[in-house]
Structures are given as C-alpha cells and as structure tokens.
C-alpha cells in the first residue's frame, strides 16, 4: 500500500463534501476493507485519503417492518445478514447468498455496501502490471487470453464478471438502494444501480464520485414465495461464483405465478434474465418447463475461449432452481 491519510467519517454530509472536493480516486471510501485493502496492496488504487465509513452513525442494522419491508443499513455486516432470523425465514435467497460469501472472517467485517460496490476479481484487472481496458488501457486481455472465470453475457468490451453474491439476491427480491449525494438522497431499483461496460468500461455502477450508498430496502415478503441462491464454485471456500442464480418464485401449488431470476458470476453486472422469468411465469413447472427456462436464460450467451462451460452451468442452475420451486 502507498501511504494515505485516514478520516473517520462523522456525517454523510461530511463524506459527500470531501468526495466533491477531490478528484476521482484521490479520496476513497472504506468500510470492511476486505476488497479495498486488496486493491491497495496490489497498487491498483493509490488514494491520498481514505474515508472510514464505519464511524458513521445509524448506517448499520436490519429493520423489519410488515408494511415497508426490510431495510438493511449499508454498514451491516454480511455475517449479520446471513444469520438474521427474519432474513433466513422470509428472504432465504439473501441469507443463502450472504452465507456463501468468502469466509467467516470476511463475513464478520465485510459490509452490505462494500459487497455491492466491490470491484471485479478479474486476474488481469488485479495485476498491477497489466494495463487493461478497465484501468485505462487499450484491450480486455480476457478476449484473447485466459477466460475461464470471465463473462458470457453482456461483456463487450470488458469481460469481467460482477463478483457480488448479495446483489443478485437482492435484485431478485426487487430491492432498492438509497444513495446520498451533495444534492440529497435518492432511491433507485438496485437492478438499475449496476451498469454494463458498454455504458462505462471503468465502472460497475452508476454511483457518482461524490455519492455513497446508505441502505438497501427490500419490499415486504410475499406469501407463497420460495427463494433460492444456487452458487457453483470450484472450491468450497473462499471462492467466487463460477455462476450463480438468485431465484424468487411466487408459487401457486406447482404453478409459478411470478418468477424473478438474476444471474451472478456470468456478466459484468448482476444479470436479470427476463427470458427465463417469462419461460416460467404462469406455467406449471415440470422438467421441460424448467429446462426451457434454463435454455432461455443463456440464449444470448457469447462465451470466450475458456468459458463455454458457464453456458451449460448457468442453464442447469436456472433449471435446478425452478425444479426446487416446484418440489
């Protein structure tokens, strides 16, 4: 790590002011630090100042309200999300996703906000000496290089995958994210928070340089809902997803009243598969319906040299989730 100065944040206003007064990358935010410190250690980022968000009051904790739903502060740790009784019971997809993240030590300090805003794990991006497109270079090295862990959907021109497990799960539940900037706060669908490299190759979300994520809101759990987070990995832990599926179903017996299918580990952003959702909605789920949903989920996939297996894998995970809903 290069040297930096450290500020314990005292208010959101102070944070947005400090961010507004600096150039991009000069001042960075840190909460759990489990991602950022890795970037600093690799000299991928060399900020002059880090703002410690952990000292901000009122940004940690989980609130449950029958009418407004679930509110999770951005500083809530992944471990607290994974073990929260209401989340486990009514929002299983989130608890399962949280429990699948990294390791106990990471879950104990990693935060919701950090998990949503973490940077890609791409091995070209994480190598200081490789000046890839994402870091202002000319090409994405995954295109002609080793691409086992890269994107099959939405990649062009940067084939990273978004590493978050919580994002697909929360998007599948229709979550919103509350953002505060110098002009005040705004709320948007978490689905719209993430961007693809075609829009901006350097960033994974729409957060402006002087904005911060303060909380995530999840609508009240609907009755007859079943939800799952299926994550395929090479290694039990710690390992990022080769592919994952966050799936939320409203079921009427074996018939799917509505489905929400969001893929992780296969695209530069959490990837909502409207195609798979359409293939399931209103259908009585059986083997062939679930297979069709899987096939539809990956019909636009464009694998690179080494990751065609992800197409099959994703397809199978979607089918499996659908069958689980019906069983």
């Amino acid at each position: 790590m290069e040297k930096f100065s450290y500020v314990n944040a005292t208010s959101v206003e102070q944070v947005t002011t400090l961010l507004s007064d600096s150039r991009w990358g000069e001042v960075m935010l840190v909460a759990g630090g489990t991602d950022l410190l890795g970037e600093l250690k690799e000299y991928i980022e060399t900020p002059k100042t880090l703002i410690n968000l952990k000292t901000l009051p009122g940004m940690e904790g989980i609130k449950v309200d029958e009418t407004t739903g679930l509110t999770i502060g951005a500083l809530t740790t992944v471990a607290d999300i994974a073990k929260h009784p209401t989340i486990r019971h009514h929002y299983a997809v989130v608890a399962e996703a949280a429990g699948s993240i990294a390791t106990p030590q990471i879950r104990n300090v990693g935060t919701l906000g950090g998990n949503l805003c973490q940077r890609p794990r791409c091995w070209y991006y994480r190598d200081e000496a490789t000046n890839c497109l994402k870091k202002g270079g000319d090409i994405c090295f995954a295109v002609d290089g080793l691409s086992k862990y890269h994107a099959i959907l939405g990649g062009d021109p940067v084939y990273i995958v978004h590493p978050s497990d919580l994002a697909p799960a929360l998007i599948a539940l229709g979550a919103s994210v509350k953002i505060v900037g110098p002009e005040g706060e705004k709320t948007m669908l978490l689905e719209d928070f993430f961007t693809l490299p075609a829009a901006n190759p350097f960033r994974e979300n729409v957060l402006q340089s002087n904005e911060i994520v303060v909380e995530v809101q999840v609508p009240p759990a609907k009755p007859n809902t079943k939800s799952f987070y299926l994550k395929a990995r090479e290694k039990g832990a710690p390992d990022f997803a080769l592919a994952s599926v966050a799936a939320v179903f409203e079921m009427d017996g074996k018939t799917c009243a509505s489905a929400s299918i969001v893929l992780g580990g296969v695209a530069p952003a959490p990837w909502r598969s409207k195609e798979a959702e359409a293939a399931l909605t209103g259908k009585m789920i059986d083997d062939s319906v679930s297979r069709q949903a899987g096939a539809d989920a990956v019909k636009d996939a464009q694998p690179l040299n080494d990751n065609a297996y992800k197409v099959t894998l994703t397809q199978n995970l979607v089918s499996r989730a659908a069958m689980m809903a019906a069983s």
Binding site: E2, K3, Y43, K48, A129, T130, G137, D138, F141, D144
Partner: peptide
C-alpha cells in the same frame, strides 16, 4: 502483435506517484 499494453512506463507504474 498481441496488442498488449505493457511498457516500461507501466512496469514502473506507481513510481513517484502519491
């Protein structure tokens, strides 16, 4: 040929910064 962007400058990236 391979369009890489490695250069001596990049090898020394970070030198003198910050």
């Amino acid at each position: 040929k391979q369009g890489t962007n490695i250069s001596r400058r990049n090898f020394l990236k970070g030198v003198g910064t910050g």
